[in-house]
Structure formats: C-alpha cells, structure tokens
Design a protein around this nucleic acid. Structure first.
Lengths: 190, 190
DNA sequence: ACCGTCATGTAATCGGTTACATGATTCT
DNA sequence: AGAATCATGTAACCGATTACATGACGGT
C-alpha cells in the first residue's frame, strides 16, 4: 500500500521572505477574500456558518493566524478607533497573490481517513457495536448536510460553486460511511 | 450544519494518575498487543507494512510515545544487554486494560474530511484541473488498496478481521473520491 | 440590577513535525 | 574498502489545543 504524504511541510512562497503558510492560513485568506475586510470574529462566524465546517478552525487560532499573516504582509491590519478597538484585516496584493497561487496549483496529495472508529475496528473493536453508534451519528450528519445543500440551492442565490461542490463531497462521504457501517455491522463475526 | 467535535481532548483513565492518551497511544498499545514485545522500530515496520497506513505515525513519535507510555506504567521497558541495547516494550496489565476500555467504547464522533483539494475547490479552485490530478492519485491509491486486500484474502491466513474491514473502508472512500472528482471535473463550469 | 450568553481576546502547554546524527549491514 | 541504505535515536521548534478572563448587551 502506498505511503501517503501526510507531513506536508511549508509552502514556500517565491519572492517572499519566509512565510510558512498552512491550510489555516489559506482558510483565513480565502474567507477574507470572500467577505471582504473582517475581524477574526467575523471569520469565526463565517467559518461556522458557511461550510468550512468540513475543516474547522478554533476561534483562538483565527486571532493568532491573522496576526501572523499581517506580520508577513499578506494582510493589512487596522484598529478601530471606537470603543472596542477591534482589529480589522484585509487582503494585501501579496496576500491575494499567495492565495491565488495556492488555489490554482492542483496537488496530488491524498489525505488519510483517520477515523477513530475505524481505528478501533482495526484493533479489534466489535463491529456491531461500533456500527450502531456510528450509523446514528452519520445519518444525522448526512441529514444536516442535505438540508444545508437544499437551502443553498433554492432560488437564484449567488452561492459560490465551490461551496456546493464541497458540500456534495461531504454528502458523498457520509453516504459512503453509512454504506460501510451497514455492511460491517451485520457481517458474520467470524 | 452540525459542528463536528474535532478537538477531542484527553482520555481520562479511571484509577490511573493522569495519562493523556491520544490516538497515537492506542496505536502503540494496539500494535504491541498484536505483535508482542517490540522495539519502536518493530512498531514502525509493522505500521508501515500492515495497515495503520490509513493513520500513519512518524517513526520519531513511536520512540517518544513508547517512553511516555512506559512512564505512565502502561508499557514495561527492558533494555537489551547486547550491543545495540535497544529498548523492548511490552504491555503491562494496566496497558492492556486501557486498550480494551478504549476499544470497546464506541464513539459517536465524526471526523472531518479535511482534504486539501476540496478546500481549494471551496475557495474557488478550478474543478477540472483539481479533478485531473486528484483522479489520478486516487486511482493509483485504490489499486494499491485492492491489491493489498487481495493479498490478505488469499489462502487461510490468519489476518485479523479488523484489518480487512479497515482496508475495505479505505477502498470505499477511494471509490467515493473517484466518483466525486469524476462528476466535479466535468460538470458545466457555470 | 442581575444573569446569561455572545464577543473578543491572551497565554501556557503539548503533541506532532522537522532537522540532524551516528552505528550497522549489505552490496559492489 | 567505500557507498548506499537500513536502523535507531535525540532534540528543537511550532502550530494547534486547552484554559482562562473580561467586556458588551439583551432580556427579566
């Protein structure tokens, strides 16, 4: 079986000092591109709501990541004068270039599945018991995804194509999980 | 869309001081259970070869993890007298209990997909280009999985049931990825 | 006025990742 | 004998996770 390149290291940016951009960085850059100038808190809501929910980022990291990207010159930072003095970030031209470069460069990397329940299965966990719990969870999740998809599809909203596709990917995997656990749960145990 | 519990924290072990067991810990415990007393290097080979390849662990971590588990009393450590003086680890009763508890406790956690290419798609990457590269990679990976599965299935080898199931899960997901990218790659771009 | 929840952070910690290094073996 | 590869670690670093904390605001 082929080794999966899991330890993807730094993205080195031609021409820029030495910014190590992780997926988190691109999520921040990408979200700001989509919604315009934003505070870390805006990003948090956006991420929750929209659909980076297939790749969640804890809110505390949004703060530090914004600061870092600003430090690297990929975002500009501006503090509000008013009471809260929140930091508002926006893309710099360099940030936009970095995002575009990343986005347009297809990668042959494969991700591992890394599902805890499958790990338990691997190490001898009882298929029927694992399946019962997992099936319920995946069915719920599938339902949530489908509802979200329906909501985004109605009318002529201007939902970016990528959002729908990503959601559809999620839906496909949920279905696959359901198929898998259905089979695994009832196969003869010997 | 439902929030996925991604930040699964510590597994607290009733009765034991304060061992924080991660998935890596259970991989180590589980592998040692399967192959008996082993050095970190044995674990590395085992992990590579067998099938924890759907959840890889870098070899350096096997060393530190073994040391930590020994420290927590879940493994016992014994140094060879001979030249290499390698450390050989084996399960203690406590370690075995911890493993069994973990394994038999089904969890409703869901994993996120976290696929970089889908992330690029989400942020506006070109479906056709991404699909081309991903399709090739997934096809190759699928082939490798299937070959491995065939190899493990022939004859009356005593391959643990979990190994086959985990492999089958991987195969299912690879097929799903292929379905997805096939569709995404050729859908009308507007 | 008080309470609960949302908003907005800061900071310590830690597992995971990368870098580096040396001793065995095997092959030519 | 030297080169290449396998075996076996050690250690620094850093992003991600957890813990903690306070201010604003809507409702009762």
């Amino acid at each position: 079986m082929v080794r999966l390149g899991r330890y993807v290291p730094y993205a080195t940016l031609a021409g820029v000092s030495s910014p190590r951009l992780t997926e988190t960085s691109y999520i921040v850059l990408g979200l700001i591109e989509q919604i315009g100038p934003a505070t870390p808190y805006d990003l948090k809501r956006m991420a929750q709501l929209s659909t980076v929910n297939f790749w969640s980022v804890p809110h505390t990291q949004l703060y530090t990541e914004c600061a870092r990207l600003a430090n690297e010159g990929l975002l500009s930072e501006h503090r509000e004068e008013a009471g809260r003095r929140r930091r508002v970030y926006r893309l710099t031209p360099g940030g936009r270039r970095a995002l575009e470069r990343w986005r347009s460069e297809p990668s042959g990397e494969l991700e591992e599945v890394r599902d805890v329940s499958i790990l338990k299965l691997f190490f001898g966990g009882d298929p029927a018991e694992l399946a019962a719990t997992q099936l319920e969870a995946h069915r719920r999740q599938l339902k949530a995804c489908e509802e979200m998809h329906a909501k985004l599809s109605v009318g002529e909203q201007d939902v970016p194509r990528g959002w729908l596709l990503a959601l559809e990917a999620g839906i496909g995997h949920e279905r696959e999980f359901i198929r898998f656990w259905s089979r695994a749960g009832k196969a003869e145990s010997r």
